[in-house]
Simulated scan of single mutants.
Amino acid sequence: MNKLMKAILFIMTMMVAPAVNAQTGTDQNLTAKQQAIVRIAALTGKGDLAKLKMELNTGLEAGLTINQIKETLVHVYAYAGFPRSIRGLQSFMTVLEERKAKGINDEIGAEASPIKGERSKYDRGKSILDTLLGAPQNGPQTGYSAFAPVIEVFLKEHLFADIFERDVLTYTERELATVSVLAGIGGVEPMLQSHLNICLNVGISPGQLQQFVGLIKSSIGKKEAKSPQSILDEVLKSKK
């Protein structure tokens, strides 16, 4: 009887373990939509419009709405500039026209919700940044923020209030888009390191970040994936 009970308990444990892992994210992969956001943001930052058109189609087929993809392409401008973002939007317009000509009607999706409350944009942006970083940032300004205080104001009011506050994309989706476009443009390792840490703060697992690097490798190149992999290794090592 004891052996039988042990066998039953072992089988039950093996059945429960995968469910626990799924809830904690231990073995969780990025969803098809998240993978599409990674590739779209990376290719837009890189400026590879031919590949981008293919991934825009893939994103729509994965279930991203038109507004979610537009929001991803707009989000890119905060990191790669208006030219890359606008070229991405123009490519998306072409894709939608081609799909419509084939009789494909894609879901438009929700618009951004109106902003409620009377707090200033600076205070709203600071609150969002505190949430992303996982702790309030109340110390004196240092580094580039002390050197050029106006850029710190722009970051709080525009990037984290005007852009991150728009709920068409979640914080998780925006951070995936952010690290992807940073990987795409290259040469911005300190910012990439900071946002990889934020990714962990907003619930993206180490395994999912490894998958992100793999997507960078397959979508924009092995060379471009080397730096993100090295930085991710450092970030994960620091968490142990």
Rank of each mutant, 00 (worst) to 15 (best):
L159D: 05
N197F: 03
L132R: 03
A148W: 04
I185E: 01
F164Q: 07
F154A: 14
D130C: 09
A146H: 07
F147L: 14
V179F: 08
L129F: 11
V188I: 13
L132N: 03
C199S: 15
V150H: 10
K156A: 15
A183I: 01
E165F: 12
H195S: 03
A183Y: 00
G134H: 03
P190C: 13
V150A: 13
M191K: 00
V188E: 05
C199N: 14
E165T: 09
D130H: 14
N197H: 13
T142V: 12
F154E: 11
G187N: 11
L176P: 00
T170W: 09
N197K: 15
E165A: 13
N197A: 13
R174I: 03
E173Y: 03
Y171S: 07
D162Y: 09
A146M: 08
A177W: 01
I163W: 06
D130E: 14
E175G: 02
E165V: 04
D162A: 11
D162L: 07
F164R: 05
E175S: 08
A148K: 06
P190R: 09
P136C: 10
G184H: 02
S180W: 06
L192P: 01
T142Y: 04
V188M: 09
F147R: 08
T170Y: 07
M191I: 11
T131C: 04
H195N: 03
T178D: 00
P136Q: 12
A177Y: 03
I185H: 02
H195T: 02
